[in-house]
């Protein structure tokens, strides 16, 4: 099973790298993202990039955006390019194909986020504020960021896979995912704005008194549960006959 998953992951990476026509163009794409987020932004921010949690918070969300394009292509791309049926006619099990596709998207997005984070932590020391000594993110922040972005990447990758399993084209899958996230994102902020002032004040006072450690544990637990539920849903929805006939 693990060997089969790795075989799919390897193939997915090759396809991702060749998305822009050649392997060189694929690597260049990654280098540009890492260069911008892992070198340019930290070096212009200087040491505050590692001493202030804002840098890590922004990297924690990065996989969400990186994973969408990859995962939309997962099954819808295979269907659009007429490679899906041949893949399904091979000896690979349902679980191996599904796990391989999700793992590849997660590793790609989370990998870029982590590499950018680690490089950023180093190059921030060479920014304009040339203070002596070397500073790096506190280990606890880094661990929280790494776990949160991993769980988030799994969530988006699995959700995207569910959409991609039924979408006829990559464009359709991508549009459905983008619109879904936009509705969630803007819906949250608009919803808060629409609340009565008294409710907003009450919420604000509640937030100020909340224990952040408890909130953090709650968020992590919710993400783990959501990830597991979505993986189970994707497993149920992966049916060879439906994939061929859709």
């Amino acid at each position: 099973m693990i060997q089969d998953v790795l075989t799919i992951v390897r193939k997915e990476f090759m396809e991702i790298l060749h998305q822009r026509g050649s392997r060189r163009a694929g690597w260049l794409n990654i280098v540009i993202v890492v260069g911008l987020l892992g070198i340019y932004m930290p070096i212009t921010s200087g040491r505050t990039w590692v001493t202030n949690p804002i840098g890590l918070v922004s990297f924690a969300w990065l996989p969400l955006f990186l994973v969408m394009g990859i995962v939309a292509d997962g099954f819808a791309g295979e269907r659009e390019r007429h490679t899906l049926e041949t893949l399904l006619a091979s000896r690979l099990s349902d679980s191996a194909i599904l796990a391989g596709k999700i793992t590849a998207a997660v590793l790609y997005a989370w990998g870029i986020a982590m590499v950018s984070t680690l490089i950023g932590g180093i190059v921030a020391n060479f920014g304009s504020d040339k203070a002596p000594g070397f500073v790096f993110y506190p280990a606890s922040w880094l661990a929280i960021m790494a776990s949160f972005s991993l769980l988030l990447a799994i969530l988006v990758a699995t959700l995207g896979t569910l959409v991609s399993l039924r979408a006829g084209t990559v464009r359709q899958a991508y549009q459905q995912l983008s619109i879904g996230f936009m509705v969630l994102w803007f819906g949250f902020f608009i919803g808060v704005q629409l609340l009565p002032d008294t409710t907003k004040l009450w919420l604000s006072s509640r937030l100020e008194t909340l224990n952040l450690v408890v909130v953090g544990i709650g968020v992590f637990a919710a993400l783990v549960i959501a990830d597991l539920a979505l993986i189970a849903a994707a497993r149920l929805r992966f049916q060879r006959a439906k994939l061929i006939l859709d």
């Binding site: 193939k11 396809e15 390019r81 007429h82 049926e85 041949t86 893949l87």
Partner: peptide, 13 residues
């Protein structure tokens, strides 16, 4: 082994 309606090849590769 199967060669189905389409070649099923990954054309980017």
């Amino acid at each position: 082994g199967a060669l189905l309606e389409h070649t099923g090849l990954y054309e980017r590769l």
